[in-house]
């Protein structure tokens, strides 16, 4: 049984919109980066590295990663809400998911800005 009490304004709407906005960002980036790969052909290390060392590409790659992690948070959180009933387990999984995704955000920033 689902007895959800909807409290307050715009319950869930923000996440619903963010899920779609991040999806659109990722879709455009994916097409863009695949086009770059296709244009450059098979790459050795220097060419491959120079793609992501490029300022605008670095910027958009980071935006893609942020979109990906926020998108993953909403998706995975929905999964825990759908399938994990005990509140203690669910809360633990929520926290672990947030910690992992926060760590990934720092990690991708470190990778990109070391280039």
């Amino acid at each position: 049984m689902i007895n959800r009490i909807v409290v307050g304004a715009h319950y869930g709407l923000k996440d619903w919109i963010i899920q779609r906005a991040t999806a659109v960002v990722m879709a455009f980036y994916s097409i863009f980066i695949v086009a770059v790969f296709l244009a450059l052909g098979p790459a050795d290390f220097e060419v491959w590295r120079s793609i992501f060392a490029n300022g605008p590409v670095k910027f958009f790659t980071f935006l893609f990663a942020l979109s990906l992690f926020y998108h993953a948070w909403i998706g995975v959180r929905d999964l825990w809400m759908d399938y994990i009933k005990p509140v203690s387990v669910r809360l633990t999984l929520h926290v672990l998911t947030i910690l992992a995704l926060t760590g990934y955000t720092a990690w991708i920033a470190a990778i990109l800005w070391r280039l």
């Binding site: 491959w48 991708i108 990778i111």
Partner: peptide, 26 residues
């Protein structure tokens, strides 16, 4: 597919890091 992609985020980040860091890691 979303779950699968989420689960491989860490290995993919590691692979990406290796691919761009140095000629040896590449």
């Amino acid at each position: 597919s979303g779950v699968g992609l989420f689960l491989v985020l860490a290995p993919l980040l590691w692979l990406f890091q290796a691919s761009v860091t140095s000629p040896e890691s590449f």
